[in-house]
Nucleic acid binder design. Structure first.
Lengths: 198, 198
DNA sequence: CAAGTTAGTATCGACTCGATACTATATTGG
DNA sequence: CCAATATAGTATCGAGTCGATACTAACTTG
């Protein structure tokens, strides 16, 4: 009864957010999926800015993502850079124009106000609940979690010395800066996951 | 910072819910908007089951709603009934087939499980936060609230006697049964809204 | 009763999205 | 070392959404 209510509220909120986004984007001749793609590319790390990663994140097919990227590139909202090691791979970077668009469009001011008026304790609870629901959805749909690099079990953080804050990824075998650690990665795995499972 | 997090979580959850719905509906050759329409029609009252009301609820245009209804009717998921008083108006009713579809598709079991595992106090807080965000979105987009009939300021409830539980709507000037009072109405206005504003 | 309003439909174009098929590049097992 | 296979990405097609515009029919108001 009450759990159904939570579900209904989440669905309704999602629908209304989508309506609002559509309205904000219409003047710029863009669709919700375009903004979602740009926002993702603004927050992911250098191993996750490919068509495949976007496909996984948004839960679509490769072809759909390919078309979305074509549109965004034509509008000069992102740039493509070929990978030097693997010539099949293309990395996508949001252009300055694209970043400006994301910052202008993404936060609905009215909603931010409403968020700001929420009691801090309620906010913590709500964020935890939403995060739990997201985790549940990702698991049952066999989707990756795309967590923050610094909290990944592949991430070995340097705790002392001049390189404090930087780290090393044991999966891709590469040095990571302190800012890299804040970005989301398609290879993310929770630290408490039993080793050898993935 | 933290308010942005709440916003991001709500958006992400909305996107993932949409992806999951698409997946569940694909086998039945339906789209998310079809389910949204059916679910609305399953919960609204007899004054709100028209194309105009659906248009307002879903935040679309009349033409879009008209097409959606055409598709649903062709699939025998709803039936149209002409209004006897106003011959411009058509009322849409979900067919038994449609109701079965809604009950089968709507609740994502994995998500319901996750909802059920939420701490009761957190759940109350989360529901309150989601409801607040929905209210904020509706207000800034000049959309109606579509609240529950029994809690509307137009609703005059009978508190005693044989007719206890029934009520009278001062707006449409009509008697309402106890079950009518549980449905959502496009004319809903909060009881604490200053009289004469709407 | 004319003018304006409201309910709903019809049509068109831009776009999403999934399915399928395809190319090009990497990887792997014999 | 190379054939088989896997992976990254693109191209194309069809079904469908969605908004814009224009339209008909019916109701309301001055």
């Amino acid at each position: 009864m009450s759990t159904e209510n939570l579900y209904n509220l989440a669905e309704r909120l999602g629908e209304l957010l989508r309506v609002e986004r559509r309205g904000m984007l219409r003047a710029r001749q863009l669709e919700p999926v375009h903004l979602a793609t740009l926002r993702y590319l603004c927050t992911c790390n250098q191993f996750s800015n490919t068509a495949s990663a976007i496909t996984e994140y948004l839960g679509q097919t490769k072809g759909t993502t390919s078309q979305t990227l074509k549109v965004l590139e034509k509008k000069s909202l992102l740039e493509r850079v070929a990978d030097v090691k693997d010539r099949r791979v293309v990395h996508f970077f949001v252009s300055p124009t694209g970043r400006r668009l994301v910052s202008e469009v993404a936060p609905s001011l009215a909603l931010m106000d409403a968020c700001a008026r929420v009691e801090p304790s309620d906010q913590v609870a709500a964020e935890q609940v939403l995060a739990d629901l997201i985790t549940a959805l990702l698991q049952t749909n066999n989707m990756r979690a795309f967590g923050i690099c610094g909290r990944c079990r592949h991430n070995q953080r340097r705790q002392t010395g001049l390189t404090k804050g930087t780290s090393f990824c044991n999966l891709v075998k590469q040095e990571l800066s302190a800012s890299d650690n804040q970005l989301i990665c398609r290879e993310y795995q929770r630290v408490d996951v039993a080793a050898g499972l993935g």
